[in-house]
Each structure stands twice: as C-alpha cells, then as structure tokens.
Design a binder for these strands. Sequence first.
DNA 1: CTGAAAGCGCTTACAG
DNA 2: CTGAAAGCGCTTACAG
Lengths: 338, 338
Amino acid sequence: MVTMRDVAQRAGVSIATVSFVLNDTKPVTPATRAKIERAMTELGFRRNMVARALASRRTRIIAMAYPALDHRFGFSAAEFFTSAADAARKQDYHLVLWPVGNDGAELTELVGQSLVDGVVLMEVQLDDARVGILQSIGTPFALIGRTTTPDGLPHVDIDFETTVENAVEELYGLGHRQIVLVAGDLSHPSFRNYGPYVRTEAAYRRVAAEYGVQIVILESSDTTRSGQEVAARVMAEHPGTTAVLVVNEYAALGVVSGLKKLGHDVPREISVLALLMSPETARLADPELTIMRTPGPELGQLGTEALIRQLEGAEPLPPQLVPASYQPGGTTARPRSG
Amino acid sequence: MVTMRDVAQRAGVSIATVSFVLNDTKPVTPATRAKIERAMTELGFRRNMVARALASRRTRIIAMAYPALDHRFGFSAAEFFTSAADAARKQDYHLVLWPVGNDGAELTELVGQSLVDGVVLMEVQLDDARVGILQSIGTPFALIGRTTTPDGLPHVDIDFETTVENAVEELYGLGHRQIVLVAGDLSHPSFRNYGPYVRTEAAYRRVAAEYGVQIVILESSDTTRSGQEVAARVMAEHPGTTAVLVVNEYAALGVVSGLKKLGHDVPREISVLALLMSPETARLADPELTIMRTPGPELGQLGTEALIRQLEGAEPLPPQLVPASYQPGGTTARPRSG
DNA sequence: CTGAAAGCGCTTACAG
DNA sequence: CTGAAAGCGCTTACAG
C-alpha cells in the first residue's frame, strides 16, 4: 500500500504538506503542489479512508436506517435509497443501509460503534422512539417523514396536504363529485401511527369538505388482493361513486383489476387515481395508472443533503415538504354523466 | 467517548488485556475477565470500529456492487440486498451498497479507499470487466452470477438448467406439448452478455429437445407492455401453444394480462409459468402467477457468506447453484385438450 | 508556506 | 495469563 509517507518522501516534502494539498486545507505553493500531485499519480496513491476517519474523527459514512416494518422493501424504498446513495457519493460520503427495528435498540448498538457520522431515518413514525434516542446520544440525523411535532428537527417529507388537494382538484375538474378514498389500513396496529396514512386521510377529509364532496373512506392494506376486495365494496356500498383515490400502491393495482373483473370500465365508468406511487408500479396496471408520483428520488436526496449539511456545519436546510406530482395515465377520465 | 484506556484503568489492567477479552483472542483469567466486563458495562463502553479497523487492517465492511444497468432496482434486487445485509450483520460485518458502472472504473476508485474488506458483485456479466479488476487489485470478492468461465472464482448463481428442467417437467406433466419460451431480449446490446437470459434460453433449447417439444422462442424486454405484445404474437404466430414460460418478471405480468385482454382464458386455455420471479410480484397478477421463485434470499446470503469465509481465511465455500423453486399459483392447469 | 510531532483508539508481536 | 510498546495511516494544532 502506498501511503502519504511514500508520497511525501518522493516529493521531498513532509506528510503534513501532502495532507494539505489532499484536503485543500491550507495554502500551498503551486510548485510544491505540482511536485506532490506528480508523486501521487506516479505512485498511484489512494488515501486510506480509515486512517483519515480515525484522525479526523469523521468517517464520511452515513447510515440510512430502514425499519423492517410489515412493509416490503419495493420500488419506492429502492428509489429513496438509491437517490440517497447518489447524493452521498456526490458529496464524497458513503451510505450504508441499516435494516433495524423500530424500537431503536439495534440503532443504538450500531451508532455506538462510531462507524457513521450521522443517520437518515426512513419511515419515521408519528411517535418514533428512534428520534429521542439519536437526540440523547447526540448523533446528527435527518428524517424522511416526520413525527407529530417535527419542529426543530431536520426533516423532509411528502406534502400530503398539497398532494391530496391536487388530486381532488384534478378529479373535480374532470367533473367528478363522488370521490371515495381508499385509505391505508389505519386500523392495523402497526399503522395506527403511520404518518402517510394518517395525513392523507386527514387531508382528504378536509379537502373533500371544502369541495362539498361527500366523505367516504374505506381501508385497504397494501396488497392487490385487498385492493380488489375494496373495489367490490366501493361499488356495492357506494354505487354512485365515479372516482377512487387510493393511498397504497399495490392496493391501487388491485382496485383497477378488481373493478375490471366486476365488469366496470376503467376509466369510462369509474376513474382511479393513485395518490403515492412510482412510475414503475403504474406501468403494471392496464390501463397504466394515473398517479400522483411519490417524490422518492427528491426526498432521498434532500434528506441526505440535510444531514450532510449538518455534518459540515453549513447553513441548515429548512424542512421541506414535497408534493407528489400528477402524472397522467389511462385510469382517469370525465365521468360518464359528467 | 469511553475508550479502552478508560476501561483498562477502571479494571486495573492493561488495554491489551481489555482487547483480549473483547476479541476473545487470548486466554484470560475468569476473574480478570469479570473485572473488565464490569468496567465495560459500568462505563458504557463501545469499541470504536474505525480504530479497530485501522489497527487490524480489516474494516469488517463489505460492499455489494450493483451495476446500474437498464435494469431497475426492484423487488428482486431488494431481496438480494436485504438478505446479504442480514447475513453480513450476523457475522458482525456491515454491508454498503455501491451502485457502480459496469466498466469497473468507479469500482476501482472505491476499492482504492481501503474502506471495505471485500466485494460482492451482483449482476455479473458473462464477460465482466469488474472481475479482472478485482483480481488484479487483489481485493477478495464473491460473485452472484457468473462469468463464462467461473471455475476457480467464488460464486453462487441460479441453477438455470435445473430451473428450466423442472419448469418444463411441470408443464409436460400437466399434459402440455407446445411450450413456448418468452426469453429476455438478447438482441438488445446491453443483454447480449446477460447470463440469466443466455442460460435460460440455452437450457430451454436443450430440455425442449429432450422432451420432444417444439422449440419456439420469442423475445421480450422486462416490461408489462412488452409482455402484452409478445402474448399477442404467441397466439397469432403459434396458435397451437398451450403453455408459455416467461423469463422476465414484468414481462410475465404482461403476458398474463395480454392473454386475458385478447379473450384467452388463463389457465384453462393457456398456462403461464414465470421462470424467475419473486412472490411479491406473482401476487400482482390475476390470477396469481405460478412461478419458479427466484432464490434471491438464498443467493444474497450465500454470496455474502462465501466472501466472509475468504476474509476469515476459512475453508472456502464451493460454488453453489441454486434452482428457483416451484411455487404453485393460478396460471397453470392441464391443457384443454390434454 | 512548510515541517516536526502528537495523537486518533485500537491490535498485536514480543517479552516475561 | 498479563503488560509495555510499537504501529496502523492519517489530521491538526503549534511553531517557525
């Protein structure tokens, strides 16, 4: 292994000076710099990250803590993760993925190893034990999602309010007046505190009232089967329905296939709009789903940047709420009698 | 931060002895051990992984290099990754994900940082530049997938031969005699060298010949749309077909929906069997797909273990080929005129 | 602008 | 079985 000592020797300088040009941390004469840079390329020097970490007390590694909920790690999680990894790489950081429990025990253990400079918390619960733990340990962190009272905590999240508003506006604009919400399964104990479910439902209630649309909410877990079942219930219990908003991705696929199976024409007879979905998933439906596209890439990047800014002592990024963006597909249209 | 020095002082021993009990690397009197352990818990000591890494020249971090192909990072990749992360954690290693290019340039750069002890290579191409690079650098690695001549390289992969054999046997046993293969898009430049596509096609040719089944191969890229299109072609060009084997996951979903759309009854009129699929994806089809389940979790684990064994200097794991396992669903049945 | 030296928190021969 | 000491490859005051 070629070390800084080798480089320094070859360039005829001290290792301190090598370090200065490497990190651009002190002014160095162009001539000296050139000598050192030549020595580095000639020797094929690559700086040892571990030694740097130990000396500087900064590993330049950050962790993304992903709770192993009942939730699958699918397209959406992958989007968050890969965009976060990219953002980290661009700033010369590494990202490690920590699939840890929600109670924070494993997280404490891992953070204690002093391996990472900070943590990006995914799937933050409204009341999340991990937040208090990181605060008490003093580990820098950023949230993707937010607790009930996120003020003062660096966080980014989906702007559920705006997303639902825009979704309802879109459907209302098409002429729909009976717009049902297929919400997440808030009655399931694991999800009682799940922000996206809680917030989309609340937003729907508010926006529906505002538009004078009757509030009809059915729950569905995030499976195609459950979506199919709820589709049947929608048509049986609320026959006047002309449009359905669906929170869960795979439930939305099921709602579409379920409606078709029952002989309903999507979108001519009934429109389906997915509230939080990735384009990849949208393409699995036939017709391709009209969606509010989950801003996974944006949030992964913003969350990572928020954390890195803290680590670098830069101006903190203000909390950001990013709405899902409307992406037209084939499952929405004017209602027949609109 | 509580260091080994603090522990040693409190226990009245040297830091060497603390290290010995911590790593269980030399015999220590029960009494001494007890003193040290008490001191550690009293002080809340956690060993600093970075210092350990520098001193021991082993970081206990391994990387999973995932090439950013045209491929998406979906369920399957997630399965590989999370099972690998779990396997690593169980052996007290960390796993980092490196989304790197296929040419090996970024990989070289990252490996040069001495951050990881070894690399698990995902999506290995039949002729993969990364393999030669890692060999020349001398970084330990394990392959998930394999090159054309993987002998001597530690690797694990899907047993495509057995998978296709079992799939054909299953269909043949049901009475099918006209079994079409919807292969991957080998004609696409990116995938000419893609092992799973090449190997499944070769295996189908061999097995079909063996069973006296006419060899019919159509290509499809891994999208639902492409699957739908190919379904139409199958029925138009090979009307006697009673069963379809599909290599690509999302193409398989498209084949099912495409057939239904054309008015064909799945499985009564035609059976569909997905050759490499995750159960999550299977559930998205209606009826749920009959699949050969991709052994993602097994391979992620085995690949990681193969690497860790090398790192620990243990008996190397022999290369392992794991077949996809048959998982019944609703898309296969006896042919009508069987 | 450059260098000598201490130190980051561990591991590991070596000696006893 | 235990300890004193060197060393892993860097960074960073401190001095000049």
